[in-house]
Computed example of a mutant assay.
Amino acid sequence: MSRPHCPRCCRPLGHCLCALIPRLSSRTRVLILQHPSEVRHALNTARLAALGLSNAELRVGEEFEDLPQWLAQPGYRACLLFPGEGAQSLQAFAGQADERPALLVVPDGTWRKARKLLHLNPVLATLPRVTLVAGLCSRYRLRKAPMPGALSTIEALVAALEVLEAPARYEALLKPFDALIEGQIAAMGEQTFRRNHHPG
């Protein structure tokens, strides 16, 4: 019999993170496109981010037929947070002489699954691509990043919003993420963590 889970954060009731999830506002509209394989992931930081941002929406799927309608929301200028050829820095995008707030589209999944989302939803290729500043380091100490600068979805969103919404800060969004990591380390034991994930 499975343990009861919190219907909001989807964590086991004994490890509910809801008390740590803030409710932060932003002019930027955030649209997270989550690959279905991420829904049951132990971290699922995209869900934590969507719960913590009042102007965010989380959609789960592989093909989003009504995506063109979502992207055409009046009063916003859409962009895709994903590296690639022709991508510009988020700072450059934010600095353009356009008063409209951003509609930030964020694919959520492994790199392979995220690329699949882009392939299955060709309208995403029509959006300007934006990237975060180089050299950011993930706080997720339990997994080796697949490449330099690779961040979890919630970390990438915090970094992006602190550019788009400057001088507002979004660090509070990482509180449940940090608690989640500390809980996983505690569950495996400090010695196991140090042996497997913290050389030196």
Rank of each mutant, 00 (worst) to 15 (best):
Q96F: 06
L58T: 02
L104W: 06
A92D: 15
E85Q: 14
R27A: 13
Q88I: 13
S54G: 14
Y76S: 09
R27F: 04
R47W: 02
D108F: 00
E85P: 11
A87M: 07
Q73Y: 12
R23F: 09
E65D: 14
C18L: 04
E38K: 00
R112D: 09
R100K: 09
S89L: 11
R77C: 10
I21L: 12
L58Y: 02
H35K: 03
V105Q: 01
H35Q: 06
E57D: 08
L81W: 00
R27K: 13
H119S: 15
I32A: 03
L17A: 13
E62K: 12
Q69Y: 09
P83G: 11
V30S: 02
G84I: 01
R112F: 10
A92M: 11
T28I: 07
Y76W: 04
G95W: 09
A97P: 10
R115Q: 14
C18G: 08
N44T: 02
R27I: 01
L58A: 05
T28R: 03
R77D: 11
P83T: 05
Y76L: 07
R115S: 14
P107N: 01
L118C: 04
N44P: 01
S54E: 15
Q91G: 12
L24W: 06
R112I: 03
A97T: 12
G95N: 14
A87N: 02
E85N: 12
I21A: 10
E65I: 10
E65L: 14
H35R: 04
R29D: 09
A49L: 05
V60K: 02
L17K: 09
A92S: 15
G84K: 06
E38I: 00
T28G: 06
A49E: 00
E63Y: 14
C18V: 08
G109W: 00
D98N: 09
G109Y: 00
D108Q: 01
A92E: 14
L120E: 13
D108L: 00
A49R: 02
S89G: 15
V105P: 06
R23P: 09
V105G: 00
L24D: 06
D108H: 01
F64D: 01
C79L: 08
G61C: 01
L103K: 06
K113C: 10
Q73R: 15
A94K: 14
Q96P: 08
L103Y: 03
E63S: 14
A114M: 09
S25F: 07
G61T: 00
H35L: 02
F64C: 02
Q69V: 07
L31F: 02
A102P: 09
S54I: 10
H119C: 12
G84A: 05
A56S: 10
A46C: 07
W111Y: 02
S89H: 11
A114C: 14
Q91F: 10
G84S: 03
H41F: 05
R112M: 10
H35A: 04
R100V: 04
E85V: 10
L20S: 15
G86Y: 07
L43F: 14
R112P: 08
C79E: 03
F82S: 15
Q91E: 15
Q91H: 13
L33C: 01
E65A: 13
L53R: 03
E38G: 01
G109M: 00
P36R: 01
Y76M: 08
R100H: 05
Y76K: 05
S26F: 07
L120Y: 08
S25A: 14
L48Y: 05
L31R: 07
Q69N: 13
E63R: 15
T110P: 04
R115V: 07
